[in-house]
Design a protein around this nucleic acid. Sequence first.
DNA 1: GCATAATGACAAGGTCACTTTACATTCGAG
DNA 2: CTCGAATGTAAAGTGACCTTGTCATTATGC
Lengths: 67, 67
Amino acid sequence: MNNRLRVLRAEHGWSQQDLADRLGVSRQSVNAIEKGRYDPSLPLAFTIADLFGLPIEAIFLREETPE
Amino acid sequence: MNNRLRVLRAEHGWSQQDLADRLGVSRQSVNAIEKGRYDPSLPLAFTIADLFGLPIEAIFLREETPE
DNA sequence: GCATAATGACAAGGTCACTTTACATTCGAG
DNA sequence: CTCGAATGTAAAGTGACCTTGTCATTATGC
């Protein structure tokens, strides 16, 4: 599952720590999600979407299934 | 996190087992999610949204934060 | 009564999400 | 070169997600 977290974070001029603080998670979690090491939980995905004022689908993208 | 899974499933006339088969998860997982015992992972939430042709936000609803 | 389908729930086990702590790297400022 | 801020990664722990298996309940049909 790809995501646009790094881009959105950069647009706001936030460090990973800044974003982590706003989300109430650790900096390592933000880093891991950005780097695609794992996907966030659904509640955390909602929190992220709310923070950026976007729908979840605009931030987290399905893997393109190679048809 | 509330969800409209039970309603959507009923609209399609599917049993929990039917839905579980279509999602590729166990019947117990469908039951647990419907009953709110836990939230699905983000990938599973996407699979559910795709199956019903709805955005995630139309199926899974934030807890109403008691203002 | 008996059988079957549907649902709700629990236990044990594996994997994943997230934590804290810690260390290494990179980069711009002085 | 040194310092601090930002980032990447790893280890170890906890709890959430998801599995299989099992049992109980309810409803329907024979």
